[in-house]
């Protein structure tokens, strides 16, 4: 008894020990590396390539932050987290920022003591079924066996959706996306559900993607974004404005190709402030004046990041949809750099 409590206290104390550290920016600078929490592997969003280098949409954000803070987009230690471990990893200080398809919800923001710093992908939960089942709507799924990642908002949305439509289902809880794929393909479950972007990424990795359809119903709002520990607002500002810089850069037409030219000074004052040729925005953040320029230069603006990793010309083939700039009818809207 005594020993068990002792070990438990030891574990818990170890977990909690890192949480007290406040100045994340100083820690990151002293370490010379950004610890960034990502998925264990979701092609397009975050997955190691053949050479073991992490690449993807979420990975790009990590690299942009590292470029802004440390001046080196490669100075990132990617920490793979599951739906289960991600919050503990962030709360304990094992990672500095979590960029892992994490849905911004009230209870995570308020009760779990995290700060969400914006939305880098507007998503919603969908269903994927084999074409051979002949299902055309999620409401026809009465009695189906559904594969689902545990520890995510999808689990709760699923329960709500089936309850609201008064139909039954059999949940098969699965830890990671990688484990879900073979189960779905072998027919251990009829349906696979997760965020629509995740479904597209998963389907792209199948041998015969055309044999599977994503049903039209989107049953939830899933604003995915980066988050940090509550309480270190300076660090939160850096992550928030790095994301905003990528979004604003697309709106202002700044790309990784023309950024050197634009950094020489333009006649658009907002671009000048963003790139540090005018004003002192970088210093206000506790960084130098070129912070945003380095971030954009290393990974490109939001649009470039999107097209390169998950856009229509990639195997994942997501259209911009809600994730277009507000000027193009989407929801992306960066506050002004002023």
């Amino acid at each position: 008894m005594k020993k068990t409590v002792f070990l438990g206290a030891l574990t818990v104390a170890g977990l909690a020990a890192g949480a007290a550290a406040a100045a994340t920016l100083d820690d990151v600078k002293a370490r010379g590396k950004l610890n960034c929490g990502v998925t264990t592997g979701l092609v397009g969003f975050a997955a190691p390539d053949a050479n073991g280098n992490w690449d993807g949409f979420d990975v790009g954000l990590c690299r942009a932050i590292a470029a802004a803070v440390l001046g080196d987009a490669a100075a990132v230690e990617f920490v793979p987290t599951t739906g289960k471990t991600r919050f503990t990893a962030l709360a304990s200080g094992e990672i500095d920022v979590l960029a892992r398809n994490t849905t911004w919800t009230f209870s995570r923001d308020v009760d779990l003591k995290f700060d969400f710093l914006g939305v880098n992908y507007y998503d919603g939960q969908g269903f994927m079924v084999p074409k051979s089942l002949g299902v055309s709507s999620a409401k026809e799924l009465d009695g189906a066996t559904v594969c689902i990642q545990t520890g995510t908002t999808t689990e709760l949305n699923l329960a709500d959706f089936f309850r609201a439509n008064n139909i039954k289902y059999e949940p098969v809880p699965i830890e990671t996306n990688a484990e879900a794929q073979p189960l779905y393909l072998e027919g251990a479950c009829d349906v696979y559900t997760t965020d629509a972007s995740g479904l597209a990424a998963t389907r792209a990795a199948f041998e015969n993607p055309q044999d599977h359809v994503v049903l039209p119903e989107i049953i939830s709002k899933e604003p995915l974004g980066p988050l940090v520990r509550h309480g270190d607002n300076d660090w939160g500002d850096i992550v928030r404005w790095t994301l905003n810089a990528l979004i604003a850069a697309e709106e202002l037409g700044v790309t990784s190709a023309n950024i050197d030219e634009m950094a020489g000074g333009t006649n658009n004052p907002e671009i000048n402030r963003l790139l540090g040729t005018e004003g002192t925005l970088g210093e206000m953040l506790g960084l130098d004046k070129d912070w945003a320029m380095r971030a954009i230069k290393s990974v490109g603006n939001y649009g470039e990041l999107f097209e390169r990793n998950i856009g229509e010309n990639t195997p994942i083939g997501l259209s911009r949809g809600l994730n277009a700039q507000w000027t193009n009818g989407g929801l992306l809207y960066s506050p002004p750099f002023r």
Binding site: V5, G83, K84, F87, D111, T150, G151, L156
Partner: peptide
């Protein structure tokens, strides 16, 4: 899977859940 998995994740009450599990 229930208390130490989904409940822990959805509520974020890791310490409480782990103590109960123990």
């Amino acid at each position: 899977g229930t208390l130490g998995g989904i409940t822990l994740n959805q509520t974020g009450r890791a310490i409480e859940c782990v103590l109960l599990l123990m």
